[in-house]
Amino acid sequence: MTEDPILTATRVSKIFGGLVAVNDVTFDIPRRRIVTIIGPNGAGKTTFFNMLTGLYRASTGRIAFEGRDITRARPDRITKAGVARTFQNIRLFSTMTAVENVMVGEHARMKAGIVGSVLRTPWVRREERRVRERARELLDFVGVRKDQQEQLASNLSYGDQRRVEIARALASEPRLLLLDEPTAGMNPNESLRLTEFMIRLRDELGLTILMIEHDMKVVMGVSERITVFDHGEKIAEGDPATVRANPRVIEAYLGKQEAA
């Protein structure tokens, strides 16, 4: 499973005040796989995500993407290097249209500077047009209907907002896509469609996907590897069948859910 990882995290911890949110986690993401992190609420999954994307800085440990150390890199640099993400509670720019949101995602791949933008040189004009067209293509690709694409993000349906967020993440041309609970609030049918979509992303675009997910059906259906967090620590890792059989996992997470 550890053949040529796209991202490696080595003995990473995050301490807030006295509270250890993530404790000494070593973790890697194999290229072109769909990997899932599961764990009960408060297990440190989102904190871990935030460290991978530069929103939090790891207290100790080292994170490398494509062999480059990104432990202390800024979020925008990490995005530029090829990591993009979505958020658990959708964070679209609500006053922008769907297309504009996706165009913001392309920021890191654009070059227009302040002078060029003011003069609107032919080159800048072409770039704008290209980026806008690509935004529309991406929205088509994730399945946002044409008539919804010029709507303000805040007016879109919940499912469309999730799709726009994924399109926005894809716009930065990532090689690694991080999805934080992508199926939250979706019905089983929508979840299934999203699962299929993730497989397409992997196969057609060659993306690696790391997600946090609670829906066990989605997790077991799509993941090639599952990592289990509990109380900030990694307690298990392996393919779905192995993880499902692990007694610690059953105790920490699955057991609770089945009991509920």
Partner: peptide, 23 residues
């Protein structure tokens, strides 16, 4: 322009803006 969108993005949500590659 690209810059104008970046300004509005960071006005609305700095975290999301930074995560979308806006310095």
């Amino acid at each position: 322009s690209r810059l104008g969108r970046a300004w509005i993005a960071l006005r609305e949500d700095e975290v999301a803006a930074a995560s979308m590659g806006i310095p």
